[in-house]
Nucleic acid binder design. Structure first.
Lengths: 232, 232
DNA sequence: AACAATCGCATTGTCGACAATTTAAGCACT
DNA sequence: AGTGCTTAAATTGTCGACAATGCGATTGTT
């Protein structure tokens, strides 16, 4: 599938070995293969990926940039922990920035881009029906949907912040706490409404709908996080 | 003067030599001592600061993080150039995020913090009267004002994005394009109105006023940038 | 003279070793 | 037993050298 990921920094094809290590560790953290809250050993990871510590440290710096690890001088790096406060803080910002992205997209998106996005959504709906219950496709589709709108905003800082700095953390919450049930089909409807608003060049409405969409998504994860806390 | 800068990453006291190089190069870029658009030589800068290339590259990675340099793999780093489009994009985001910060501050700021900020503003007004025309103090005062509100939001991502990632670029536009004239005294009035709204716990109004304040600031710099372009 | 390919130089990416700092284990002491 | 100090191991920060890549000049061809 043709995506536009390469327009953002994190999704360019990895050219250097630091790039390769980055995407690998990123995936490992997001999917929980490297446990949340665990300490990261530079020597250990370097050995594991057959690189020296130099490119690994470069990767760590970028992981810090997208809030997946926290580093303290002379003490090393830890994988972040998923907390209620962090989730709220993260989604507060997403509401503002993605709302803005929608407003800008409604103004700047070309007609054929809107058509393409609309078709993409239909396609996702098909996939969803076929692969009922498998949340992976929904996840990828949702990400793709949000990405396209963000890229359509044409604001380089907005693109950088959302696609490179925040989205991996968003995915980490989703992957590790899950998203399922009736929320999935509702998300589709909300996506459709947003596209309609953009197609009508109604930036204000698109903004509002996106904020609600994200707010609803947050509430869904909130309940999961609550359940998760009660267990542990 | 007691500031709260140490709560954000960029303003912690430099412990490692990479930290020292970072703040030095940051200042040099913001103040134009390293020209905008110029290429950065790793070996050259390393020699200039008497460090090896390792900590310098760490510093470069952080400079990229705060959008002061742009790196391309195997080709090196360039200092960013100040453009009209970049200014608009930057301030679009500031409006959203600092508006949010104001809303959160109005909800979460302690009464004595509000008093302190109010007193700080009076103090700035005094300094402003004494040192008429010198924009440095105004600059520092404005930065301090915005910082306190951002920190009061208690949102770690918001604090990180605004204080660590965007503010150096904002300062670069201000320092290199200047801020002066009647805008200075108006900014004071706008600051006062914002504090009043926060003191009244009116988050919605504080949000609106901050957006307007930033919008006005943007317009001011826009004209400077236009004049600057016509010359060159 | 314009263009293409090749070569050489400069710059960036990576490595392994050393220095500095933190952490924790061991020991003395209360 | 618990607490504080001392010391050793482990980890991070830094360095200088080498490898790989990109850029520019030179040369040869049309």
């Amino acid at each position: 599938m043709q995506t536009f990921y390469d327009q953002s920094y994190s999704f360019r094809s990895p050219v250097t070995s630091a790039d390769r290590v980055l995407v690998a560790v990123q995936k490992a953290i997001v999917e929980g293969d490297i446990a949340a809250g665990s300490k990261i050993s530079e020597a250990g990871l370097a050995k594991q990926f057959n690189v020296s510590r130099a490119p690994l440290r470069e990767a760590l710096a970028r992981l810090e940039r997208c809030h997946l690890v926290e580093r303290t001088p002379n003490a090393g790096a830890r994988v972040v922990t998923l907390t209620y406060e962090g989730l709220i803080a993260l989604y507060q910002i997403r509401e503002e920035l993605e709302g803005l992205a929608c407003r800008l997209a409604a103004e700047q998106m070309a007609d054929d881009e809107i058509d393409a996005l609309s078709k993409l959504l239909e396609q996702h709906l098909e996939n969803q029906r076929v692969r009922e219950g498998e949340s992976y496709y929904q996840e990828a589709g949702d990400v793709d949907f949000h990405y396209r709108i963000i890229l359509a905003s044409k604001n380089q800082y907005l693109i950088n912040m959302l696609c490179d700095e925040l989205y991996f953390l968003v995915r980490m919450y989703r992957v590790q706490l899950g998203m399922n049930g009736p929320r999935v089909s509702r998300a589709f409807d909300e996506h459709k409404a947003i596209i309609t608003a953009i197609a009508n060049r109604d930036g204000e409405l698109a903004d509002l709908l996106m904020r609600r969409h994200i707010s609803a998504s947050r509430k869904n994860i909130e309940t999961k996080l609550q359940a998760h806390k009660e267990v542990s």
